[in-house]
Every structure is written in structure tokens, then in C-alpha cells.
Simulated assay, not measured.
Amino acid sequence: MALNISVIAPDKIVYQNVVDEVIIPSKTGLLGILESHAPLLTALDTAGILRIRNGNDWLPIVVLGGFAEVEEDKVTVLATAAELGKQIDVSEAKLEMEEALKKFNKAENVKEKNEAAQSLKRTKVRLEAALNQENK
């Protein structure tokens, strides 16, 4: 027996499969989920990488906020936005990261700094997921 996982964004089902392990980026830290895990409901981090293991292969999925529920070997991730790491262009992600870093460094007040920090976090997560997928 294994885990059934569904990763759902508002506009599509991003991923659905039977897998061996899931690592969820929750607001309180990373949560490892194996079969027979206790029921759980958790908020996702504002930007994080959901990692799914099937055999020896890991699949990174960028998730931007939402919730995850674990119940009876079923993991349901309802994300505000989600993207498979293999669908992210590495060079584009690097450029986005550089731009976000420039905006962060130019921010002049607390509001601008907070917005730039969130943008920087999202671009960093996207780049990390793309690079992790590229190394496969």
C-alpha cells in the first residue's frame, strides 16, 4: 500500500498519482508523510516546494499557499498556485530571481520591503525546484 496524492490548483489538477512519500512545506516547517500517517490538516507555506518520492525519484512541485490534508493514505493539496519543477525554465527563473533581488535591495519602506521579500521567496523557490528537476 502507498499514498494517493492529488495536487490541485484553482485552474487545474497539477499532479495525481500513487506515491511512496510526500514532504509538505507547511507554515510550521517540513512535514514528511508516509503511508499510515495520522490524519492531518495543515496550512502550506506562502512559497515552498512539495516533494514527492516514487521509488528513488523525487518530483519537486512549487506550491504557493493553500492547505494540505492527510487522511487514510490519501494526501490532498489545495494550493493557491502550483507548478511542476520540470515545467520551469531555469534561465527564466534565474532572471526573475535577479529582478526580485534588485527590487528587494531598492525597497525604501517596510511595505515595499515586505512585498519584495515575498516576491524574492517565490522566485527562489521556483529556481530551486527547476534546478532540482534539472539535476535528474
Rank of each mutant, 00 (worst) to 15 (best):
1 M>L: 08
1 M>F: 08
2 A>V: 11
2 A>L: 07
3 L>P: 00
4 N>E: 12
6 S>C: 00
7 V>C: 03
7 V>F: 01
9 A>C: 01
10 P>I: 05
12 K>L: 03
12 K>V: 01
12 K>N: 09
15 Y>Q: 02
15 Y>P: 00
17 N>G: 01
20 D>S: 08
20 D>W: 01
22 V>L: 05
22 V>N: 00
24 I>Q: 08
24 I>Y: 07
25 P>I: 12
26 S>E: 08
26 S>H: 10
26 S>I: 12
26 S>Q: 10
27 K>P: 01
28 T>E: 13
28 T>M: 14
30 L>S: 15
31 L>I: 15
32 G>M: 09
32 G>S: 13
33 I>F: 02
34 L>V: 11
34 L>G: 02
35 E>D: 01
35 E>P: 12
35 E>T: 12
37 H>N: 05
37 H>C: 06
37 H>D: 06
39 P>C: 06
42 T>G: 04
42 T>R: 01
42 T>W: 05
44 L>H: 04
44 L>E: 02
46 T>F: 10
46 T>I: 13
48 G>S: 06
48 G>V: 07
48 G>Y: 05
49 I>T: 12
49 I>A: 08
49 I>G: 10
50 L>H: 05
51 R>T: 13
51 R>D: 01
52 I>R: 00
53 R>Q: 06
56 N>S: 10
57 D>E: 12
57 D>M: 06
60 P>F: 06
62 V>G: 03
63 V>N: 01
67 F>G: 00
70 V>I: 14
70 V>T: 03
70 V>S: 06
73 D>S: 09
74 K>W: 01
78 L>A: 08
80 T>H: 07
81 A>D: 11
82 A>C: 04
82 A>E: 02
83 E>T: 03
83 E>W: 01
86 K>L: 04
86 K>Y: 10
87 Q>H: 13
88 I>H: 04
89 D>F: 05
91 S>V: 07
92 E>P: 01
93 A>M: 05
93 A>E: 03
95 L>V: 07
95 L>Q: 14
95 L>Y: 09
96 E>Y: 11
100 A>R: 12
101 L>E: 15
102 K>I: 15
103 K>D: 15
104 F>A: 11
106 K>I: 09
108 E>Y: 04
110 V>L: 10
110 V>T: 06
111 K>G: 04
111 K>M: 03
112 E>P: 03
112 E>F: 05
112 E>L: 10
115 E>Y: 07
115 E>Q: 13
118 Q>D: 13
120 L>D: 02
120 L>V: 13
120 L>C: 07
120 L>W: 11
121 K>F: 09
122 R>K: 15
124 K>F: 14
125 V>L: 06
125 V>N: 04
126 R>M: 06
126 R>A: 06
127 L>S: 02
128 E>R: 12
129 A>L: 09
133 Q>K: 10
134 E>H: 14
134 E>I: 04
135 N>F: 09
135 N>W: 11
135 N>H: 12
